[in-house]
Simulated assay, not measured.
Amino acid sequence: MTRTFLFLLVFASILTYSQEDLLKDIDTIKTNKTTQPAFKALQIVTGQSTKLSAKNEWYIVVAHRFGDISKGFKDFFGLDDASTKLGVIYGATDGLSFSLSRETLMKTFEAGAKYRLVEQSENFPVDIVGYNVIAINTELDKDNYPHLKFSDRLSYLTQALISRRFNDRFSLQVTPSYVHKNLYEPTVEDKNQFLTGIGGRYKISKRVSINAEYFVNFDNHSFYKNPLSIGVDIETGGHVFQLLFTNSQVNSDIGYLTNATGKWGKGQVFFGFNLYRVF
């Protein structure tokens, strides 16, 4: 698995340096910010960053998580058990975007709104962005839940994304979060969950950065784990490519935060990637 990761990293790096004529748009700021954005990608790893799409920009999102690599050749290091999320994001304004996605795990649809509240500038130390999501779990059926209602399929996420770009290389973000689930299993999780995340980005070259994030769930039972993820951002012409390892196989925002099952100490992690294409 390590060889596969290194191959993908080298391959993507080659693509990076072969597209210099296309890379100029990556560093162009379409807003009137007095500082560069804290993050180049819309996600730090799986969690959201304070970056928003510009006005009238469309993003196509493809996110993929393979299975547990600790199972080895039995599941071919996770390649036999994968989850995929497909989505679109539209920038209504420079400070407001809307998203829609669908993930294979739990057959979950998510609709989200992301909006800038405050910009980092010479007069204010941080960016503050709001993020709200409503999710629909279409995998639930009445065979298992005879009294199932449509409202039982719904769950909600509210986040405040607070980031600061300290210099050209280092950015940090704190993410207080609240999740509400209409249908939940009380023996393994709570109906209302409060989390706080911390994530950062450190740029190691012109087009490559190392990212990491960790969320603490203050209301979680012992069954689910706190999500911890490490990734690499590779900026190429027209898109940002992210390679990552995480202990949460779920791609959806709410599922990632509240349904992590892997244990890093036992090697129960999932390899994956995020790909954003701008139009």
Rank of each mutant, 00 (worst) to 15 (best):
F7D: 15
S13G: 13
Y17P: 04
S18Q: 15
D21C: 14
N32H: 09
K33T: 09
A41I: 06
L42K: 07
H64A: 06
R65Y: 09
R65V: 03
F76P: 05
L86E: 01
G91F: 04
G91D: 06
A92Y: 14
T93K: 13
S99I: 02
S99H: 01
L100A: 11
M106P: 01
F109R: 03
K114V: 05
E122P: 03
D127T: 12
G130W: 03
H147Q: 14
L148Y: 01
R153F: 01
F166M: 13
L172C: 08
Q173I: 09
V179N: 00
H180I: 01
H180D: 04
Y184R: 00
Y184M: 02
E185P: 02
T187I: 06
E189H: 00
D190T: 01
Q193T: 03
F194H: 04
G199E: 02
K203E: 12
R207S: 08
E213G: 02
E213V: 05
V216W: 04
D219S: 05
Y224R: 02
K225N: 13
K225M: 07
N226G: 00
N226E: 04
D233C: 08
F241N: 03
S248D: 02
D253P: 04
G255R: 00
Y256W: 04
G262S: 10
Q268Y: 06
Q268A: 11
F270M: 08
L275C: 11
